[in-house]
Design a protein around this nucleic acid. Structure first.
Lengths: 407, 407
DNA sequence: AGACTAATTTTAAGCCGCGAATTAAGCCGT
DNA sequence: ACGGCTTAATTCGCGGCTTAAAATTAGTCT
C-alpha cells in the first residue's frame, strides 16, 4: 500500500533502470527493439541510451543488416564498465571470484578456513587479503569495483547495519561490513545468505531463467530454499524466509539437528538420508569417506540392494511431499532442485520425485509447476553473490549524477 | 526485474494514489500532514488534493486549531463518493452487503442456496436479484457503484476472463463475470477466493492492520491461509497460493478429503478434529447437531474428560507445527488465527498454541512473529470482497480523466 | 487594531516522455 | 553510379509534473 513519493527524476531513473536491465538480460538489442520491449517511445530510448553511452555504461556492438533501410545498431552493457566480486564464505573455506559486468569470471581465489568455527575477526582479514590479491592479479583497483557481494551461511539481518547469524559456524550478530571496513575494504558491500545467492545465480543464469515465481530447493547436508516471488527473492519480515528444511513433514518424527522433531531436513538432507541408510544396514557405517561419496554409494547400491532401494524410495516420498508443500503454499511456475545432494538424487530420480510430488500436491497447482534440475553446481554461491552489486546497479539505473563517471 | 515503462502521467496517478490511500487508511489528515507522510511537497499535495476535492473524492472534515498560525484543514475520503458491494458466495448461501466508501455497511441481504451443488446458472440471477434489491432499498443506482467484489469458495484464475474452480460446489472453470453480465450486472466486478477476501478484511480492519508481512490462518471445517507479503496478498503464478490446509504435516498419515495423506487439514480442520475425537470415544457420535457446537462440546468437555483433553492437546501440537511451517517459510511479523474453528480453539488455547509453535519453529523467525486471534468473524468475507473494488480505486488514484465525475 | 505564526496557494523554473517531423544510413534496380 | 526506397535514430516543440520560494490566508495573542 504505502507507495513512496515519486518525483519527475525518479521517472528517469526508473526508465533508465528498465532499459539497462533489458539490455543486460536480453543481450544485444537495438534501440528500436528496446523501444518495443519496454514500451518507451523511440525518442526516450534514444535519449536515455545516449546518456548511458556517454557514461560508458552501454556500448555499441555491431549492427544488424537489413534489406533496405538503415541497419539497427546493436547495444549492450559495457562489460568493462566496472567489476564485481563474489565471495562465498562457507563452513570450511572462502572462495572469491572476480567478474566484469558481463559476468565473465576473470579470476578466482580460494582459501580454507580452520574448522570448526572460523573466528569472524579472522575471516575479515582473509577476505581483505584475497581481495587485494584478486585485484592486483587482474590489474583492477578497488575504485573500479561496483561492489562486493558476500554469501554467508546462516541468516542475514538486513537492517541499518547488516548482521549475520550463523549458528553453524558460531557467528551471532556479526556485522561483517564493519569488520571488512576495518580491514581496509572500501567498495560497497552486499551481504546475503549463501543459499539465497545460489538461488539468485540459478535464476539469472541457470534453470530459473525467465520464471517470475519459482522456488529453488537446495539439498545438501542440510536443506534450504530460495523463494522467488514476482521476480525477486522473498525475504519476509526479517529476511529469514524460506527455511524449508525445518518445516515439519512428519509430526513427532526423527529429531533434527535444530532440536525439533520431524523436520524435512531430517529426512531428505544428506545427513538424514545417510543416517536412515545406516540404521537400515543395522548400524554399519557406509564404506566411503565423506557424505558426498556415501550418497553416491547409496544411489548405485540401489541396483542390487533392496535396503538401499527402500531407503531411496522413502526419500523420494518424503522429498515429494516436501516439494508438494512448496507447490501448495507458493504456487510457483517452476521448482528448481539443486544442492549437491539434490542434484545427485534428482539426476537419477527426477521422474519418481515428480510422481511423489503429484501425490501430495493439489492438482491445479501441481499442473502449473514444472520441476527441473538445477544447471549450476553449488559453486554458484560466489556468482550469485556477485550478482548482488549488479542487481543494485541495474535497479538504480546507474545514475551518472549519483556515481562517478568512468573515464 | 521487468519494470513497466513510466510516463509523466503515471507519476501523477501514482502520487494521487499515494495521497488517496494514506487519506483512506490514516483517516482525517491535513494537507500539511499528508505532505509529511508521503514525502511530497506541500505544493503538490495542495495541487493534487485540490483536484480530488473538485472530483468530490475528498471532502474537508473540520479543522485542527492551533495556537497562532493558520489552522490545519482536515481532509478525508468522501464516504458518499460512491458505493461498493461485497458478495460472499458460500457453500450454503449468498450474502451481499452494501457499503459506502467509508466502508460503513448500509444494507445487507442473504439468501440460502439449495445444497449440495448450487448451479452457477442459478447463482448469477440470484445475485443480480439481490443486487437490485440492495440498491433499491438504499436509493443507489448501479451507476453509483464503484464495483462489486465477490468472494467465492475455491480457486480463482485471474486471467483475461476470470474463472472459478470450486470443487466443493462442483464449479469447474465458471466465468462468473460473464454470467453476471448476462443477468444485467454492469458494475465493475472483482472476484477472489473467499478465504483471501476474509484475510484482506482482517488486514484492513482487523488484527492484521499495519503488518506488511502476515499470514491469516483460517480454520473452519477446512483449512486455508491468506499470505500477505509486503502489504499485498500473495497469489503465486496462478493465484492458488496459500493452500496451507493441504500441506503434509504427517507423512503417510490420515487420509484427507483431498485424497492425499497426512494433510494439515485432516488434523486441525474441524472435521478432522471431530473425527479424531469420535475415534477416541470409540466411534460414538458427538451429541450435538452441527460441527460448530460439536467443537464447542469438545472444548468444554476438556475440563472433565481426559479423552477430550488429549484430543485437544494433540490438536494444539499439530496446529503449532502447522503454524511453525508458516513461520519458517514466510517469516511473517504476524500470524492471525481465524476462521470459526480457529477462533474457538484460539480463544481458549492461544498460549498453548504459541508454545507448540515455538517448539517447531526456528528461534530467530519465531521471535519475530506475534501470533494473535482474528478480530472479525467469518462473516468478514463480504466486507473483504467489498474491499476489492476499493483497493482498485485507491491504487488507480481514481483518476478523474478515466472515470466519470460524480456530480 | 496590529504583530505574529503557521498552513496553503501561487508562481516560476527545471525535467520528462511523447508524437511528429527530420535526418541518417544502407539496399536495389537501372 | 545514382536516384528511389525503406527503416532506424534524432531533433524539436508541447503538455505535464514536482519543487522551491514567494505570496497569501486565517487564525491567535497582546
Amino acid at each position: 500500500m504505502e507507495v513512496k513519493r515519486a518525483t519527475v527524476r525518479d521517472l528517469r531513473r526508473r526508465n533508465r533502470s528498465t532499459l539497462l536491465s533489458t539490455l543486460f538480460f536480453e543481450g544485444p538489442l537495438s534501440r528500436f527493439e528496446l523501444g518495443q520491449r519496454t514500451g518507451l517511445s523511440a525518442a526516450t530510448v534514444s535519449n536515455v541510451v545516449g546518456e548511458m553511452v556517454d557514461d560508458h555504461l552501454v556500448v555499441e556492438a555491431g549492427l544488424v543488416e537489413s534489406d533496405g533501410g538503415r541497419p539497427r545498431v546493436l547495444l549492450r552493457v559495457n562489460p568493462s564498465y566496472g567489476h564485481v566480486i563474489g565471495v562465498d564464505v562457507g563452513e570450511t573455506g572462502v572462495t572469491m571470484e572476480l567478474f566484469d559486468l558481463g559476468m565473465t569470471r576473470l579470476a578466482a581465489h580460494a582459501r580454507p578456513l580452520p574448522p570448526p568455527r572460523p573466528d569472524p575477526a579472522l575471516v575479515a582479514p582473509l577476505i581483505a587479503e584475497g581481495l587485494a590479491e584478486l585485484l592486483a592479479g587482474a590489474g583492477v583497483t578497488q575504485q573500479d569495483l561496483i561492489g562486493i557481494g558476500i554469501g554467508v551461511p546462516g541468516t542475514v539481518e538486513q537492517g541499518d547495519t547488516v548482521r549475520v547469524h550463523a549458528q553453524a559456524i558460531g557467528w551471532d550478530g556479526i556485522a561483517v561490513a564493519e569488520l571488512l571496513g576495518a580491514s581496509g575494504v572500501t567498495a560497497p558491500l552486499f551481504v546475503d545468505n549463501g543459499a539465497k545467492t545460489q538461488g539468485q545465480a540459478e535464476m539469472w543464469f541457470g534453470a530459473g531463467r525467465g520464471a517470475r515465481h519459482a522456488v529453488i530447493a537446495l539439498i545438501g547436508s542440510g536443506v534450504g530454499a530460495t523463494v522467488i516471488t514476482d521476480g525477486t527473492t522473498y525475504r519476509g519480515a526479517t529476511s529469514s524466509a524460506g527455511e524449508w528444511g525445518h518445516t515439519t513433514l512428519m509430526f513427532d518424527g526423527r529429531t533434527c539437528r535444530c532440536g525439533a522433531k520431524g523436520c524435512l531436513e531430517a529426512y531428505v538432507g544428506a545427513e538424514g538420508i545417510l543416517d536412515r541408510f545406516r540404521r537400515e544396514r543395522g548400524g554399519r557405517a557406509v564404506p566411503r569417506p565423506d557424505e558426498q561419496s556415501q550418497l553416491d554409494f547409496l544411489l548405485s547400491a540401489a541396483e542390487r540392494s533392496t535396503t538401499a532401494r527402500r531407503v531411496l524410495e522413502e526419500t523420494v516420498g518424503y522429498l515429494g511431499a516436501g516439494i508438494a508443500n512448496l507447490v501448495n503454499l507458493f504456487n510457483p511456475e517452476r521448482i528448481v532442485l539443486g544442492g549437491w545432494a539434490g542434484l545427485a538424487l534428482g539426476s537419477r530420480l527426477l521422474p519418481e520425485i515428480r510422481v511423489a510430488t503429484a501425490a501430495h500436491a493439489l492438482r491445479h497447482a501441481y499442473e502449473q509447476t514444472s520441476i527441473v534440475l538445477c544447471e549450476l553446481g553449488s559453486d554458484a554461491v560466489a556468482v550469485g553473490a556477485a550478482t548482488l552489486p549488479v542487481e543494485a546497479l541495474l535497479s538504480s539505473g546507474a545514475d551518472s549524477r549519483a556515481r562517478r563517471v568512468v573515464s
